[in-house]
Deep mutational scan, measured.
Amino acid sequence: CHSECLGNCSQPDDPTKCVACRNFYLDGRCVETCPPPYYHFQDWRCVNFSFCQDLHHKCKNSRRQGCHQYVIHNNKCIPECPSGYTMNSSNLLCTPCLGPCPKVCHLLEGEKTIDSVTSAQELRGCTVINGSLIINIRGGNNLAAELEANLGLIEEISGYLKIRRSYALVSLSFFRKLRLIRGETLEIGNYSFYALDNQNLRQLWDWSKHNLTITQGKLFFHYNPKLCLSEIHKMEEVSGTKGRQERNDIALKTNGDQASCENELLKFSYIRTSFDKILLRWEPYWPPDFRDLLGFMLFYKEAPYQNVTEFDGQDACGSNSWTVVDIDPPLRSNDPKSQNHPGWLMRGLKPWTQYAIFVKTLVTFSDERRTYGAKSDIIYVQTDATNPSVPLDPISVSNSSSQIILKWKPPSDPNGNITHYLVFWERQAEDSELFELDYCLKGLKLPSRTWSPPFESEDSQKHNQSEYEDSAGECCSCPKTDSQILKELEESSFRKTFEDYLHNVVFVPRKT
């Protein structure tokens, strides 16, 4: 048989008469490798580009789960590009990614509803959504962080984005990388972005840091009482949809009607710091009717980097990364020049730590249904340095008659930039024990000054392991946590139920 035959053949030295091919099969003959313009397919066939392209389009058009959109890589027609490569849609070739590779997620039936953290986790790592997304989240724990972890990498949506009755959302900033909504599939009414009845939605994105392009379709905003109209108009300008909307697409009466839409800028007039305090004062603000001013709200939190936005980490279910302080308005003076500047002394802060701070007014709604208010920009203030805590785990070892090696770990709280350490030492008198000992005694162990690591005695271990207080009263049991108490109650309830079950099964009433 021919060298490319495997198993047997019907005619000697003829690659077209093989029972099976050793390498690849091409047009009725066995070959060692697939010549151009053919590609290896499933490690035994040679196919042309049209064959591989037909497989790709067949799966793409069917949208069946589990099928493969075949691509070409290293002269092979394979189910998908290997790690580190992405497909070129024009020629199906796998090309190296520039940075992290995109991950295209194809949605069944063309859309997916995100109504819980669990459903959001199914899209973790996706960068391109081939379909439409509907966000409908009523509640949950730590929602802002969970949504950002699972949806934060999405850069492109081919269909539309719909935010509907998501009472738990305060902001859409968890879509931190969303840059493009194509609108290839539109919501009824030709809408590519749809926001309806979101009672706590206050911000779409921080438009000073976020760009969003909507290729096709219109915007729809109705019944978002805490979303200011200025935020919607800003989205029109940034996304390129200005002029597409009709009169009733953006409701003037049901958007922002319960919001404090600040239209003035508060400026800080005085800032002073110490290692654990920050004193702030800002310019006074009074609405047209000074009785509408209820006070100020001061927001602050630790910020290692200057990239904080107002609604980071917030949701309507209680999660809030900001510390909020309510401040009463100052006494009002008739003389504008003698107006008191409101302020606040922030206490209990960490030394040498940068804080993000902003302040906003708290006002009631005027009778004319106009909203007044003022808010400052987010500023960054760093507390002063102070003395560091003591170095940890000092170790001293003498390696000769004239040297001592000293080692330690950095302090747990540096409280500033540590530039150097101060080492103090003092000579001590020799131990009298060394002169009084009889060095001729056998088995004498000389006193040693070398360091030995501390260890816990058996008594201390027994005390720590004991669940009861000892007789001397030195140790006591740790208080039980809520989960331990709940577990004990469940076990007790189970024992009672099981005992009742045994009584009912074992003891049967005697027939009379």
Rank of each mutant, 00 (worst) to 15 (best):
N320Y: 11
S230H: 04
F220K: 14
L143R: 10
R176C: 09
E146S: 04
I154E: 00
N211G: 07
R291M: 12
P288M: 06
S400T: 08
F311C: 05
L219P: 05
T127N: 06
S269P: 01
S260D: 15
N142Y: 03
R347V: 11
Q354I: 15
E231D: 15
N248H: 02
L143G: 15
L178P: 00
K350N: 04
Y194H: 11
Y194M: 07
P288G: 03
G373S: 03
S402V: 15
S208I: 04
N190C: 07
G295A: 15
H341S: 13
R244F: 05
T215H: 08
K177F: 06
S376T: 10
H341K: 09
K409E: 15
R202F: 08
K267I: 14
G189Y: 15
S173M: 10
N387S: 04
D257P: 03
I250S: 08
P225V: 10
S398F: 05
Q121K: 12
K226S: 07
N190M: 15
T215S: 11
T323W: 14
L108Y: 07
K209Q: 06
C228V: 06
R291F: 05
D206H: 04
S239H: 02
K277T: 09
S319P: 08
N399M: 15
A374G: 13
Q258Y: 15
V324C: 08
V363A: 12
R244H: 13
F175V: 05
D249E: 15
R165L: 04
L362P: 03
F221N: 01
Q339A: 09
L293G: 05
K226T: 05
M346S: 03
I188M: 02
D115E: 00
S333F: 01
T323S: 07
S319V: 08
P336R: 04
L204A: 13
W344T: 05
D393G: 03
T361E: 08
L204T: 09
A168R: 15
S116G: 15
S401I: 10
T254Q: 15
L349Y: 00
A120H: 10
P287L: 09
S116R: 01
A149Q: 14
S274C: 07
N399Y: 07
N198L: 05
K375V: 07
G152A: 01
T118V: 05
E237G: 06
L201D: 00
S208M: 07
W322D: 01
F358M: 05
T361N: 05
G159C: 01
P391Q: 02
G217C: 08
N387H: 14
L345Q: 12
V238R: 13
P342V: 12
S321A: 11
G159N: 02
F296D: 03
L153W: 14
N190V: 11
S230L: 08
S338V: 13
D206G: 05
G295K: 14
S402M: 13
K267A: 10
C317T: 03
T361G: 12
S192K: 01
Y305S: 06
I327Y: 04
F275L: 13
L196V: 14
F220G: 15
A259V: 13
A120R: 02
L107E: 04
A168I: 04
D292G: 05
L349A: 05
I181Y: 00
V117A: 14
C126N: 00
V324W: 12
K337D: 15
G139P: 01
F365Q: 08
A144S: 15
R347K: 14
P329W: 04
L151I: 05
D249A: 08
Q382S: 15
Q403L: 08
Y167M: 15
R138K: 09
A144V: 15
E122R: 12
I163L: 03
L293A: 08
L204I: 10
F299A: 15
L219F: 07
A195S: 09
Q216P: 02
E109I: 06
E122V: 12
T386R: 06
L161K: 00
V238Y: 11
L294P: 08
S338I: 05
S319N: 14
R281I: 14
S401L: 04
T386Y: 12
L172E: 00
R247N: 04
N340D: 15
V128A: 08
E246H: 12
R370N: 15
Y167A: 15
V238W: 04
L280R: 00
S400M: 07
Y355T: 00
I114G: 00
Q306S: 14
L178Q: 00
Y160H: 14
L201Q: 02
H222V: 07
G243T: 11
Q216K: 00
V363R: 06
S119A: 03
K177L: 05
W322T: 02
